[in-house]
Amino acid sequence: MSAPVASIAPRRATRILILAIVGAIFAIPIVAMVEFTMRRGLDGGYDLSRWVTVFTGQLGPAYAPVWQGVQNSLVLALVTVAIMLALLVPTMILVALRFPQLQRVLEFVCLLPISIPAIVLVVGLAPVYQVISRMLGSGTWTLAFAYGILVLPFAYRAVQSNIEAIDIVTLTEAARSLGAGWLTVIVRVLMPNLRRGLLAGAFISVAVVLGEFTIASLLSRTTLQTALVVASKADAFIAVIFALLALLFAFILLIVIGRIGRGRLGRTS
């Protein structure tokens, strides 16, 4: 029974080798970064003094932009997720229930941003932001409008795969026939069953927002990424520590997304 499988599958040694190479590609830069942050001047030797400085909040006023960037990025992540939940998700539900013929169009529009380079996006966004600045001020949070477009492909895929996994039309009709109004259908039937897709979409949006540099930089906004670049010019060591922390955060987010995906699969299958 297992013999033919074993003959096709790579041998144990090969598997370990592949894993080791891939692991090294990921690990070497990270290890190098960690090593870099712990160097003690030119004479060699390591210590944790810079990490201590960061975690005990002893950074000088020169690092104020980084803290500002972290704050801005977190606000941006929240607003972007809110935009996604308030606009994208209802649209997708509406299309799935009422206008299935628009499915292809919606998918095309949502996946479009992935094929447009951020630079090109900025060229188009610059005049739009002139208007936005006049109406809403130039607060960093307004970047969330652009980020809402940027996260569309990722959020769309996450939510759509969940919509396709449940029979949303039949569930809705069943609930309606049992006496549920539209609000009840959405809150009591669709949301619980789309939870997995919504969470995954939200987390991946956060990850995208925290990692975005080009648009923020070109529109001269201070976010985590742009502040890091500025800080790295003053003190490369501290900047790398922040980059590592951002990386760790994204890592945790991705693990959580994976957990959500796996946890619910057993239930729906």
Partner: peptide, 29 residues
Amino acid sequence: PTNRRDIGMVFQSYSLFPHLTVLENVEFG
């Protein structure tokens, strides 16, 4: 509208709410 016609319906495809138990499904209406 459907939700006020006071009907009961059984569909061709399986239509139980996946996030509710059997009892909760029956209690829904």
